[in-house]
């Protein structure tokens, strides 16, 4: 399998005033073109560190990230990120439309095309009428939809999602999960989805990578052999789903004590 995104021997240490904290020890994995892979791990597993290194927002201390054959040194142009803190990742002084349009302007997309992309993206997340509103006039779930629309309109080859639904209520969360699957299937992007929720990872992913507690390594790369069509009730009551969930759950439990060390912050 040729990987679209390759992470080779990634390592990240932080220098505190008096000590060195090893957040990520040695991570190697690849994500194939068009895959939807989830990364789970206990809290403090360096998930966010890993994601920021992949996104080019944080320089790794060792190893490298390669996207479409090119090493990542800064934020690449064909990648978009959806952060957990929707309230802090949308520009509060811009309307929903302006928020979605801004990255396109940066990419020098022609004005007409920008308008089409914005409209399509809003349509695809079910917010066709909200373009003129300010983000803070919308509910949390809708704000996260806007953030997803912004990422989708950017037409990235890789979409990174950092615990995007951790701060919304359960109902909204289920809707957003299905929206993510739907967009992924329709647009054929590669998605790397970081979460601490095991069920969410199993429900969404084709693959689930289980991380250990920090210093982080990959404990298992599990294939999720559930049918491609997923549905909240049916899929979650599938016996295979329960097996996979139990399997990943026990791995995450092991992960917490994988190293015997102090628990650094994520």
């Amino acid at each position: 399998m040729t990987a679209l995104l390759d992470v080779c021997g990634l390592r990240k240490t932080y220098q505190a005033a008096d000590r060195t904290v090893e957040a990520v020890r040695d991570l190697t994995f690849g994500i194939g073109d068009g895959e939807l892979a989830c990364i789970v791990g206990p809290s403090g597993a360096g998930k966010t560190t890993l994601l920021k290194c992949v996104a080019g927002l944080l320089a790794p201390s060792g190893g490298e990230v390669v996207l479409e054959g090119r090493p990542v040194h800064g934020p690449p142009e064909n990648m978009a990120v959806v952060f957990q803190e929707y309230g802090r990742s949308l520009f509060p002084w811009m309307t929903v439309e302006q928020n979605i349009e801004l990255p396109l302007k940066q990419k020098k997309v022609a004005k007409r095309r920008r308008g089409e992309l914005v409209a399509e993206a809003l349509e695809s997340v079910g917010l066709a009428d909200a373009g003129g509103a300010y983000p803070w006039q919308l509910s949390g779930g809708m704000q996260q939809r806007v953030a997803i629309a912004r990422a989708v309109a950017y037409e990235p080859s890789v979409l990174l999602m950092d615990e995007p639904f951790a701060a919304v209520d359960a109902q909204t969360r289920a809707e957003l999960e299905d929206l993510t699957r739907e967009l992924w299937q329709r647009l054929g992007m590669t998605v790397l989805f970081v979460t601490h929720d095991i069920e969410e990872a199993v429900y969404l992913g084709q693959r689930v990578l289980v991380l250990s507690a920090a210093p982080t390594v990959i404990m298992e790369d599990a294939v999720i052999d559930l049918p491609a069509e997923r549905e909240q009730l049916a899929t979650r009551s599938d016996p295979r789903f329960a097996e996979l969930r139990a399997h990943i759950y026990s791995l995450v439990q092991q992960a917490k004590t994988y190293h015997d060390g102090a628990e650094p912050r994520s």
């Binding site: 220098q15 060792g62 490298e64």
Partner: peptide, 11 residues
């Protein structure tokens, strides 16, 4: 393995 540590900021 490439170990390009970057102590730039610290130094």
């Amino acid at each position: 393995m490439t170990t390009t540590a970057r102590p730039r900021r610290r130094s």
